[in-house]
Each structure stands twice: as structure tokens, then as C-alpha cells.
Measured scan of single mutants.
Amino acid sequence: TFELKGKVGKVVKIAEDHYLVESEGDKWIAYSDEKLSLGDRVMVVDVDGLKLKVKRIP
């Protein structure tokens, strides 16, 4: 299986209740415990079905 946990991506869209993150050339629906901005670099900390939980990284 394709393992996304630990992968790095970038926030490419902000929606009302989720983010769109591009990682490894694909776009994924993501959510975070912190507020993210367009262009933020993020790391995948968990995968919930087809949704990614991400956190901001420097």
C-alpha cells in the first residue's frame, strides 16, 4: 500500500472545513488541529480513510 504517513506536502487550497494538500504529485483532503495558510509546508501525521491529518513544519 502507498504509505503517506511522514510525507511532506503543501497546502494548495483552503475550504470551509478542510484543506487541500499536494503531496507526491497528488492532491488530498486534509485537516489539522492548527490553522494553516496557503503555501504552508505540512507533514502527514495520520491517515483516516482518504483524509490526511497534517501538521505545519518549518
Rank of each mutant, 00 (worst) to 15 (best):
V47I: 07
K7D: 04
K5G: 14
V54S: 01
P58A: 06
A30P: 00
G49K: 09
S23K: 00
D17P: 13
K27L: 12
L52S: 02
Y31I: 13
D46M: 03
D17C: 13
V42R: 00
R56D: 03
D17V: 08
E34S: 07
W28F: 13
T1N: 15
K10Q: 08
K35G: 07
E3F: 02
Y19R: 00
K13N: 08
G9T: 04
D48Q: 09
K27Y: 08
R41I: 11
G49M: 08
E34R: 05
S37L: 11
L38N: 09
K55S: 14
R41H: 12
K10D: 08
K55H: 12
R56I: 10
D46S: 03
T1D: 15
V47F: 09
R56V: 07
P58D: 09
Y19I: 08
K13H: 06
H18Y: 07
L38Y: 07
H18D: 11
G39E: 11
K55R: 06
F2C: 15
L52D: 01
D40K: 02
V8L: 14
D46F: 03
V42M: 02
G25T: 04
H18V: 13
L20I: 10
L38R: 06
G6N: 01
L4P: 15
K27G: 05
K55I: 14
K10F: 08
H18F: 10
E24I: 03
K27A: 06
K55W: 05
G49W: 07
D17Q: 10
P58R: 04
W28T: 02
G39N: 13
L50K: 06
R41W: 09
D48L: 11
E24H: 03
V47T: 04
L4S: 15
Y19H: 04
V44T: 02
D40P: 00
E3Y: 02
A15W: 12
M43K: 03
L50R: 06
G39A: 08
E16N: 08
I29W: 13
K55M: 14
L4V: 15
K5Q: 14
S32M: 07
R56Y: 13
L52N: 03
D26V: 07
E16V: 06
G39C: 13
K35W: 09
A15N: 08
V44A: 03
K53M: 09
G39F: 11
I14P: 03
V42K: 00
M43C: 14
A30M: 13
V8R: 02
E24K: 02
L4Y: 04
V45F: 04
K7R: 11
V54I: 06
V47H: 04
Y19L: 09
K51N: 12
G25P: 04
T1Q: 15
K51D: 10
V42G: 00
E16P: 11
D33L: 08
K55E: 14
D48S: 05
G25F: 04
L52T: 02
V47Y: 05
D33A: 10
G49E: 08
R56F: 14
G9D: 00
G6C: 06
E3M: 01
V21T: 04
T1V: 14
F2P: 15
I57C: 14
G49R: 05
A30C: 14
V42H: 00
F2K: 15
D48M: 08
D46A: 03
D48P: 02
I14H: 07
G9I: 02
L50G: 11
L20M: 08
V47L: 14
L38A: 10
S23Y: 02
E34T: 07
L38W: 08
V12F: 06
K7A: 14
D46L: 03
K10I: 07
I14E: 09
V8G: 03
F2Q: 15
G9A: 14
V42F: 03
K27I: 11
V42P: 00
V47S: 03
L50W: 13
V11D: 00
K5I: 15
F2N: 15
E22K: 05
I57D: 14
F2D: 15
A15F: 08
K5R: 02
K27F: 08
L52K: 01
V44F: 15
I29D: 10
D48F: 09
D48W: 09
I29M: 09
L38K: 06
D46H: 03
L20S: 07
P58C: 12
L20H: 11
L4M: 14
K35Q: 09
T1P: 15
A15K: 09
P58T: 06
L38C: 12
V8C: 13
V45R: 02
D46E: 05
M43D: 05
V54R: 00
M43H: 05
L36K: 00
R41Y: 13
V54D: 00
Y31S: 11
E24L: 04
V45E: 14
V12D: 05
D17H: 11
Y31F: 09
P58Q: 05
S32F: 02
D48I: 13
V47C: 07
G9S: 02
G39L: 10
V54W: 03
I29R: 09
H18I: 10
V12L: 08
G25L: 05
D17R: 09
L36Y: 06
V42Y: 01
W28Y: 14
L52P: 07
K7P: 01
K53S: 10
Y31K: 12
I29F: 11
E16G: 10
D17S: 10
D33S: 12
L38D: 07
V8T: 06
E34N: 06
G9M: 15
S23N: 04
V8N: 04
I14A: 11
V8P: 12
D33G: 09
E3Q: 01
Y19W: 08
E16R: 11
A30R: 00
L20G: 06
R41Q: 12
S37M: 11
E34A: 06
A15H: 12
D40L: 06
V47G: 03
G9C: 15
I57H: 11
D46Q: 03
I14V: 11
V42W: 01
L52M: 03
E24F: 03
G6T: 01
V21M: 13
I29E: 13
E34K: 05
A15Y: 07
K35P: 07
E22N: 04
W28M: 05
K13D: 12
V45H: 04
R41A: 14
V54M: 02
L52H: 02
L4D: 15
D17Y: 10
